[in-house]
Amino acid sequence: MKPIHAHIALILALLSVPGVSSAQAPAGGSSGGLWWEVSAAAGGMRLSCLLCDPTRELGPTASAAFGTYAGPSVRIGLEAGGWANDDEDVREKVYRAGLVGQLHPRPGSGLHLIGGLGWSGYRAELFSYDALRLTLGAGWDLPLIGNWVAGNRVLLDASSFASLKNDAGTVATSVGLSVLTFGVYVRKQ
C-alpha cells in the first residue's frame, strides 16, 4: 500500500472514533421527506478463500446515499461507494451499490443502526469478484446547523459464496469479501 493511502485511512479512522462525540441529535426527519449524505472512511478489505491473501488491506473509502423517510425514525435509500488500495503495482478496488436503511431505535437519540443489501464488486486488473452484499453497522449523529447532521459510524460489508475470476475463468470458488470501515459523514435531512 502506498503511504499516502495509509495516512488518509488513518486520519479518517481517528476522526471516526466514537468517543469524540457525545451530543445527541434527533433523527430529524419526517415521513416522506428526503435526505442525502456523503461519507468518507478508512476501510480494511479482505478476501477470504483457500488461495487468498489473508491480510486485511487498508485503504480509503467514500460513499454517497440518498432516500426518504419511511417513518420519523427510519430512513431508507440507495447508496453507492467504493474502496481503493494500491498493492505494490496493482490498484485494488471494491465497488458497492444497493439499498440502505437507517433506524434510530430511540427517537431523539443520535444513535442509529444501519443495514444494507446490495452488490459488491472487487477489481484488480483482470481479476474480478461480484457478490451479493449484506451491510451492518451503527452511527452517531451530531447536530450541525439547520437540517444538517454530521457523525461517525462503523460499517461491515460482508459477501460470500462467489467466485474470483479473471479472463481465463474461475480462479477460486467460495470466496468471501469483507470491508470494515470507520468513517465520518455529513447528512442533509
Binding site: 478476501l47 488461495l51 491473501d53 496493482v90 485494488e92 484488480a124 486488473e125 481479476f127 479473471n166
Partner: peptide, 10 residues
C-alpha cells in the same frame, strides 16, 4: 499475473 498477486498469496 494480471493483478492476481494483490488478491492471492501462493
Amino acid at each position: 499475473g494480471d493483478g492476481g498477486s494483490a488478491a492471492i498469496a501462493i
